[in-house]
């Protein structure tokens, strides 16, 4: 019965690797994966997702493909940001916190500016006026 124990070992290693990878690239939930200082991204919307588990924008910023994460849909829509207010191709400015991993083109937005209107998806976290 050599093989099942080898199996246990390799699966344990795989699980450990998954855990290690997870702590290195935290995203989605919470803010622990983002930088403290505010970050501003300007670009053109390539995809809009307003839905569960949370809303996202894909933005093309000077040829770089960015993922902008927003609040859960209830909060995003409460902020006035719905599928009607923006469309693919629109210029957008996203203000928030970017990933601690500089190679990762991902940020969590607290404020979205599109079509001359400002939407504070995390009103309690927006930069002081």
């Amino acid at each position: 019965m050599q093989s099942p124990f080898n199996g246990i070992r390799s699966v344990t290693l795989a699980a450990a690797a998954i855990l290690a990878a997870g702590t290195a690239a935290y995203a989605h939930h919470g803010w622990s994966w983002t930088e403290d200082g505010f970050f501003e991204l300007k670009g053109r919307i390539t995809a809009i997702y307003i839905g569960n588990p949370h809303a996202t924008l894909d933005v093309d910023a000077e040829g770089e493909a960015w993922r902008v994460e927003m609040a859960p849909p209830s909060r995003t829509i409460a902020a006035g940001f719905t599928e009607e207010v923006a469309k693919v191709g629109d210029e957008v400015t996203a203000i928030g916190n970017r990933s601690l991993d500089e190679k990762e083109k991902r940020m969590k937005a607290v404020r979205i500016i599109v079509g001359g209107k400002t939407y504070d998806v995390y009103p309690d976290r927006v930069p002081p006026a």
Binding site: V11, A15, L19, A21, G22, A27, H28, H29
Partner: peptide
Amino acid sequence: LVLWMSVLFAGRFIGFL
């Protein structure tokens, strides 16, 4: 035991990666 616990952990990390 190891496999099902790994399934649980992998599943939870879907929300964080």
